[in-house]
Computed example of a mutant assay.
Amino acid sequence: MTRLIVPVDFGEVAANAVNYALELAPQFETGVALLHVVPEDDQFHRAEVEMEKFKERFKSTDVELKSYILVGNLFEDIAKAAELLEAYMVVMGTSGLKGMQYLFGSHALRMMTNARTPFLVTQENPPKAEIHKIVVPIDLSTEDKRIMSLAIQASRLFEARIHLFVAHHTDEFSRNSTYRNEQFAHKYLNEHNVHHTTTHADGNKDFDKELLDFAELISADLVTLVNHKEQGFLNLLGKNFDQNLITNDKGIPVLVLNAHQYKKLNDIFDVFA
């Protein structure tokens, strides 16, 4: 069964995401499905032709590669297709925020708002899909057990080390709350015998910038992010943590986990335990 889905528009960013998914697929012991959505029926045939041309770029792969074309709404139907195909994950390429998208959110963000399937977002030129170092941010909003449980499952699947990166706060309440989250993370990871390190932000920059600088410094392969759907992604001042992380310019893939996916994600990772 195909369990990794890649939305494609036949461009270079999508092609990079496909290559990343093809490298990742053997770790999940699964195939890859390409998905393209057109708004009108009269565009279907042309999309079929483009899809066949696009698939030729990956003919040397040993991974099973399927393709689907849907007529509908891009932002709704990719999420629906992922559920229908029982996908483990959607691997999606993004070139970040451009122009007016900066105000209204990137395509990737809008699709993830409707998704009940995890998204692994890659940038224009993603690294090889060899995941050895996973960065997990620790801050006030950390949903302790959920994030740590998923981090543990991911570390076991990829045989990766967890790197906790703890936010810096100056006020006592925030500092104490973050400290409690950090201590819980240590305890939970130690109880499950997960190798991990801890680094503290120094507070000289916004937390998302410090986090990405740290991830780049240690050559991290993945950053995890838990999104709260009800809070939305976008901040009109451009300071939204989720958005800045997902559209980062350092080429670091981001695994986006929605809080309401918790049970499903544990079921997914349990397959490989």
Rank of each mutant, 00 (worst) to 15 (best):
G238K: 04
Q243M: 14
Y179Q: 03
H200D: 13
A201D: 02
R175N: 05
Q231T: 13
G238F: 03
V226T: 14
H260Q: 09
Q183D: 11
F173W: 04
S174E: 13
E172P: 00
I252D: 01
A215S: 14
D202R: 06
N258W: 08
H186E: 02
H196S: 08
N258V: 12
L225I: 10
A259V: 14
N204F: 15
N248Y: 02
A259F: 11
T198C: 08
E216P: 00
A220Q: 03
L212V: 11
A215K: 03
T198E: 10
H163D: 12
R175H: 03
E191G: 12
V223I: 15
L222Q: 01
E230R: 00
H168Y: 15
I162T: 03
H186T: 05
T197F: 05
L237H: 06
D213L: 07
G238Q: 10
F214E: 07
L255E: 06
V226F: 12
Q243E: 14
V166C: 07
G203Q: 03
K229A: 15
Q243W: 14
G251K: 01
F233N: 04
Q261E: 06
D171S: 10
D242W: 10
Q243K: 11
I252W: 02
I218Y: 04
R161E: 13
L255M: 10
D208N: 08
G203A: 09
D242P: 08
N258D: 12
I246W: 08
L245G: 01
A215R: 03
L257V: 11
N176Y: 14
L222H: 09
T198K: 04
V166F: 06
T247F: 02
Q231D: 08
L212G: 01
T198D: 09
L236T: 02
E191C: 09
L189E: 05
I218R: 03
N176M: 13
K209Q: 11
N190V: 07
K229N: 14
N204W: 12
F184C: 11
F233G: 01
R161A: 09
D208M: 04
T197M: 02
H186R: 04
N190R: 01
H169E: 09
R175L: 04
N235G: 07
F184M: 14
R161K: 08
S177E: 10
N258P: 05
I218G: 09
N240K: 10
R161L: 08
D213P: 00
H163W: 08
N193R: 11
G251E: 07
L234P: 01
L212K: 00
N235H: 13
V166G: 04
F214Q: 03
T198L: 06
I162Q: 00
L237Y: 02
V254A: 04
Y179R: 00
F207N: 07
Q243S: 15
V166D: 10
L237Q: 01
L257K: 04
H228N: 11
N204K: 14
L234Q: 06
E172L: 07
T178F: 02
D171C: 08
E172W: 05
N204T: 15
